[in-house]
């Protein structure tokens, strides 16, 4: 599927996005008007966060909303895999919003780099040149998919800031570790902190993205506040949430799911309809929020989730059935 369509330069933002933003504003005004003190204050500080984070972002016309239909915002923020806050899809929305602090947030760029740095996420956004909006397909390894309007910046910009040394071949991403705020970490449903990795050339691919928001708003906690990785040609579990450290390393890092069950989850995790999960098929996917209540919409899964043109060259000559 083509995603570069020159004509889309001219098109306005998708109706879904602007409509939901409009609704949210109304609700804020309403809450303030009826004098919900605490709620009003919390929302106001979120407005502040939005401003410092550079919201609303300009849409990147290379990845337009008009080419794909975004999934309803309430599904994107209510149907989450964030095992730090429970293995149920409905749990993160509740459990990640019970006092877990994601503001302020410090990110560390370290390892084999010329410019190691530890900085506040808002400074990182500024140094990366601000944020933009991109609409990407999102395919979970569990055979469901969404379309999400992400806000953030190209991962390549972050790599440039860190200025990797020649011996750096991989990026190792580490998420937060705070068992007191994270019921999943205190129950130990996975090995924490969550770790993910990318090859350096994957990280500098134009699609690789650090998201700091969705739907023109700062990232909700349950979606991985305040910043997360988005690699739309890979299964969702590669998209590590709530990153605290990005380390440039020489050897391939072991990602959490691979460590958990290497026969089912690999390092690459590229979306591939021809390579099944050992327990289910990856040939097609359920489109979240589409179809009727009892008859869901399914569609064939595309190679590299439809981003073959941009990323296929990264894996030239590799046996993708073995390097899953």
């Amino acid at each position: 599927m083509l995603i570069r369509t020159k004509k889309d330069w001219e098109l306005p933002e998708s109706a879904v996005t602007s409509e939901s933003a409009y609704r949210t504003h109304n609700r804020r005004d309403f809450l303030k008007a009826i004098g919900l003190g605490a709620a009003g204050a919390a929302l106001a500080s979120r407005d502040l966060l939005a401003a410092t984070g550079g919201f609303p972002a300009k849409a990147n016309p290379d990845f337009p909303a008009s080419a794909l239909k975004p999934t309803a915002e309430e599904f994107v923020t209510s149907y989450n895999n964030f095992y730090e806050f429970g293995t149920g899809k409905e749990q993160p929305k509740d459990l990640a919003n019970r006092g877990w602090k994601t503001d302020p947030w410090t990110v560390e760029l370290t390892g084999l780099v010329n410019k190691p740095v530890k900085l506040d996420v808002n400074d990182l956004i500024k140094q990366a040149g601000g944020i933009e909006e991109r609409v990407y397909r999102h395919r979970c390894v569990e055979a469901w998919s969404m379309v999400v309007p992400w806000d953030g910046f190209a991962l390549a910009k972050l790599v440039a800031l860190a200025d990797p040394k020649p011996e750096a071949k991989y990026l190792k991403f580490t998420s937060f570790l705070d068992p007191k705020s994270s019921p999943g970490q205190s129950s130990g449903n996975l090995d924490y902190p969550y770790v993910e990795g990318l090859r350096l050339d994957e990280a500098t691919n134009e699609l690789a993205f650090i998201a700091t928001g969705i739907y023109s708003k700062p990232m909700p906690n349950q979606n991985g506040a305040p910043l997360r990785l988005v690699t739309p040609w890979k299964y969702g579990f590669k998209g590590i949430k709530s990153i605290v450290k990005i380390e440039f390393v020489a050897a391939m890092p072991t990602n959490t799911w691979k460590a958990m069950q290497s026969s089912e989850y690999g390092f690459y995790a590229n979306v591939n309809p021809k390579v099944d999960h050992p327990r289910w098929s990856q040939a097609s996917e359920r489109v979240i929020g589409e179809g009727s209540t009892f008859i869901p919409k399914r569609q064939p899964t595309l190679m590299f989730n439809g981003y073959e043109k941009q990323v296929a060259a990264l894996y030239k000559g590799m046996d993708l059935a073995r390097n899953y």
């Binding site: 923020t77 149907y79 469901w144 009892f294 008859i295």
Partner: peptide
Amino acid sequence: PIFIRPNPSVGADPLK
């Protein structure tokens, strides 16, 4: 959760 008190976590994929 599907009809009486709709829950978006369920409504995202009701048949599942």
